[in-house]
C-alpha cells in the first residue's frame, strides 16, 4: 500500500484489478478545500487513460514491477514492436498507450521498460535525448535578430523549435517531456 500523496510519475498501481502507471500527478487544494492529488493513469494494454482524484491520505495499491531492457524495432501504425534484449522475445504494445512516442523512439535503440507479470506497463524515455536533424529551413541571410527561431525535423519526425543556426545533419539534444530544444551537440 502507498499513500496517494506519495504517488509519483511512474508509480505502478492496481486499480479495480487492472494495472495502471501514473503518467501525471498534481497536488490540488481547491479553494477552501482540503488537499487532493489529481492523477492521470495509463493502462498500457488497452491504452485507457484514467483520471482519478484521491485524498492525499488515502491508500492506493502499489504493485511490484520489474525493469528490463528492450530494443525498439519499429511501429506498424498501430503497435510498437520491441524485443527483450535478454530473451529475444518480441512484444507489441498499442501506440495509443504512448501518445507521440513514435516521434521520440529511435529504431534499434534500447529502452528501459517496466513490466508487471508479463505485461508492459511503461516505456521509459531518457529525459534528454540526442537526435539528428534531418530537415531544417534555411536561415535567412542577414537575419541576426537575437533569439530568432525556426523549426527543424528530427530523424524520428519530431518538429522542434530551434535557434536559426541549427543546420541539417547536425545533432541536437531534446527534452523528451516538453519536446523542446535544449542545446546543439558537437559530433
Amino acid at each position: 500500500m502507498i499513500k496517494a500523496g506519495q504517488i509519483e510519475r511512474g508509480t505502478a498501481l492496481l486499480i479495480k484489478g487492472k494495472p495502471f502507471v501514473c503518467i501525471d500527478r498534481e497536488f490540488v487544494n481547491p479553494g477552501k478545500g482540503s488537499a487532493f492529488v489529481r492523477l492521470k493513469l495509463r493502462n498500457p494494454g488497452s491504452g485507457q487513460i484514467l483520471a482519478e482524484t484521491m485524498k492525499t491520505q488515502d491508500n492506493a495499491e502499489e504493485i511490484t514491477v520489474d525493469d528490463r531492457d528492450c530494443q525498439y524495432l519499429y511501429n506498424d501504425g498501430e503497435n510498437f514492436h520491441l524485443m527483450m534484449t535478454d530473451t529475444y522475445d518480441q512484444i507489441e504494445v498499442p501506440m495509443s498507450a504512448f501518445p507521440d512516442y513514435e516521434l521520440l523512439l529511435k529504431d534499434g535503440e534500447t529502452y528501459r521498460c517496466t513490466f508487471w507479470e508479463s505485461e508492459l506497463l511503461d516505456l521509459q524515455l531518457p529525459p534528454k535525448v540526442v537526435y539528428l536533424v534531418e530537415e531544417a529551413e534555411e536561415a535567412i541571410k542577414g537575419d541576426t535578430v537575437q533569439g530568432a527561431t525556426k523549426y527543424v525535423t528530427t530523424e524520428c519526425g519530431l518538429k522542434v523549435k530551434c535557434p536559426i543556426f541549427i543546420k541539417k545533419g547536425e545533432k541536437i539534444r531534446v527534452n523528451t517531456e516538453t519536446k523542446e530544444y535544449i542545446e546543439r551537440v558537437n559530433s
Binding site: F36, E52, D58
Partner: peptide, 22 residues
C-alpha cells in the same frame, strides 16, 4: 469511476473529487 474512499468521506470531499476530476 472514482475509487472508493478509505474511511468516511465528507460530502465536501466527495464533491471535490468529482469536481477536480471531471
Amino acid at each position: 469511476g472514482l475509487s472508493e474512499s478509505q474511511g468516511r468521506e465528507s460530502w465536501e470531499q466527495t464533491f471535490n473529487r468529482i469536481f477536480l476530476t471531471f
